[in-house]
Design a binder for these strands. Structure first.
Lengths: 224, 224
DNA sequence: TCAATTTTTGACCGCATGGCCAAAATTTTA
DNA sequence: TAAAATTTTGGCCATGCGGTCAAAAATTGA
């Protein structure tokens, strides 16, 4: 029998009331959902998105496949909760490091290096996230998390760049291209490190920060 | 009946003689292979790698599915020939533009801008290539074209950077990180332009070249 | 204790995939 | 023209997918 709480999968999705309030979940319910998400992260990171079937995820979690369908409305909901969770983790970590930083160049270096530090401790999560970003599609075939979903990051970076330009700390450059290129450099830092784990990630981040320090700073300034 | 030339698909793959000589192909044979590869490019670019089945590719080419199996040893061989073809195209174009260029900064700008120019005329091919790079896996599940397959590009870029550093044109920086970051910036330029076709790709390339010009040049130099 | 409820199981469904092959159609060769 | 070789067709196969469901098990509450 289905639970009376939410027939058709205990989902939080869509068509609910105007307020997106969390449905109350029992302790067991939350634990199961967390367990399933963890298994999904490990499976996707280890075998790739395409081979991370519900059967594989269930096997890794040590449960029956039907349990996933019972706790999530479908595979899509599972993946979206996973992405939310990973996003919140990295956002909180980097946000704390950036809080109170002032000065564009300093901010930029702290941003790059704190993301790298987070990567060091959450390799599996981020590998899964990368797989999901490049593979997960909506029902109509369009990428669910494409470049468009990086827009909030681009906007935040542009704001930092604009302030630095107004203060004279940064040279004149196209802030959109700089934001896209910086984020590309950071994303690729993780991909490169994943393929070459022997490479010192911390040193890589320092070097990457140096690249964008030189790329952004005002021209007339002497070396520091 | 199977052709006597190569039972089991008219493949060029593996286990053949020590010399990797091309098997002779009739005019029709070459035309069919080209037609199938073209249909594969269009299908992958339009629908994504995961949904580009042999049936979809055959339908786009206006042929029966079995024809693909007859002319290629399998889907893998088709994809690998496709990648080779696209690679040759972009290599020839960019190589011609770079030929005879001297000076690290000039070389870098020509490299970035000529890749962008190629993108303008070959959007479909490059979209398919991107899908293949992130999705295509070998039989054992490992990525067929991962970051490791960019190694030759990294090595070539490192060579340019090292020469520039020795001549004093470039500052001291880690050439590997610079090479990886530049290539990431170029790859992402295409991805961004695909998502935002209204963005002026040529202007983007100019700006990206500016970023790496500032990132690489010797510190003491004044602006030009 | 025992009935009501929640949770789990494992079998099953329709569907799409890559690959296979006998037969038919077409082209080449003699 | 006729035999031989090549090419194409279309149906078939086993496999794995996400999702569903009746029944069983476990938990909860009176």
């Amino acid at each position: 029998m289905r639970s009376k709480i939410d027939p058709g999968g205990q989902s939080d999705a869509g068509k609910g009331k105007s307020e997106s309030q969390e449905p109350e979940r029992s302790f067991i319910e939350k634990a199961r959902r967390a367990q399933i998400i963890d298994a999904a992260v490990e499976t996707i990171a280890a075998r790739g998105f395409a081979k991370a079937s519900l059967a594989q995820i269930a096997e890794r979690a040590g449960i029956s496949k039907g349990v996933i369908s019972y706790h999530f409305a479908g595979k899509s909901e599972l993946i979206e909760r996973l992405v939310e969770q990973v996003y919140e983790g990295i956002g909180a970590f980097v946000g704390a490091r950036l809080d109170g930083q002032s000065g564009g160049a300093v901010w930029l270096r702290v941003y790059i290096e704190s993301v790298a530090e987070y990567m060091l401790g959450h390799q599996t999560q981020l590998a899964a996230l990368g797989e999901i970003f490049s593979h997960f599609r909506t029902a109509d075939g369009a990428p669910r998390y494409g470049i468009a979903s990086s827009e909030p990051i681009y906007v935040a970076l542009e704001k930092v760049f604009l302030e630095g330009q107004q203060s004279g700390e940064f040279r004149a450059f196209d802030v959109r291209v700089m934001a896209v290129s910086l984020q590309a450099g950071i994303d690729n830092m993780f991909a490169y490190w994943s393929a070459h784990p022997e490479h010192d990630l911390t040193a890589y981040a320092r070097e990457l920060a140096g690249i964008f320090e030189h790329a952004t700073r005002a021209d007339s300034r002497a070396r520091d």
